[in-house]
Amino acid sequence: MAVEFHELTHHGRGAISVVGVRGEGSDGVLDSCFAPVSGQSFSALKNRPIVYGIWNSTGEDLVVVRIGNDAFEIQCHGSLAAVDAIATDLAAGGAVQSSDAASWTLARNELQAEVAKAMESCLTQRTARHLLQQFQLWGEVNFNDPEIAREALLFTTFGEKLTSPWRIVLCGRPNVGKSSLINVLCGFERAIVHATAGTTRDLVSQHTAIDGWPVELVDSAGIRDEGNAIEQAGIEKARQLIADADLVIHVVDATDDSSFDPLLSQHRAGLVVVNKVDLCQQPAVPQTDCPRMLVSAVTGLGMDDLQAAISKAIVPVVPGDDQLVPVSTMQRRRLEQLA
Rank of each mutant, 00 (worst) to 15 (best):
Q307H: 08
F155N: 13
V295M: 04
D261P: 00
F143H: 07
K117C: 15
R268W: 06
N47V: 07
V325H: 04
F42L: 12
E114D: 15
A118F: 03
F135I: 00
G270R: 14
L137Q: 12
T200Y: 05
P326I: 03
E151H: 08
K237L: 08
A197Q: 08
R129G: 05
V252T: 14
S205Q: 12
V29P: 00
M293A: 10
I235M: 12
H194C: 01
P146Y: 04
D31Y: 01
N109T: 07
L80R: 11
S17A: 15
A35S: 13
V18L: 09
H77E: 08
L247E: 13
C171A: 15
A243R: 11
T255F: 09
E151R: 12
E189I: 00
F143V: 07
G300F: 11
V315I: 15
Q266Y: 01
E7K: 10
H10L: 14
V204T: 15
E24G: 08
A92Y: 02
S220L: 07
N175E: 12
T200I: 03
G159A: 12
C33S: 10
R190C: 03
N228C: 04
G227D: 00
N142V: 03
G320P: 03
A91R: 15
S180P: 04
I314V: 14
E236F: 06
A269L: 12
M303K: 04
I67Y: 01
L279W: 02
R224K: 06
I210V: 13
A87V: 04
G78Q: 02
L62G: 00
V193R: 07
A71W: 00
D253L: 08
I67V: 14
V315K: 13
L301D: 07
G25A: 09
A152E: 08
S32R: 14
M1E: 00
I223R: 10
C76N: 03
L123V: 13
D145G: 00
A91Y: 11
A71L: 07
N183G: 03
V204G: 06
V295E: 04
R129V: 06
H6K: 11
D219H: 09
M330P: 01
P316I: 13
K117N: 14
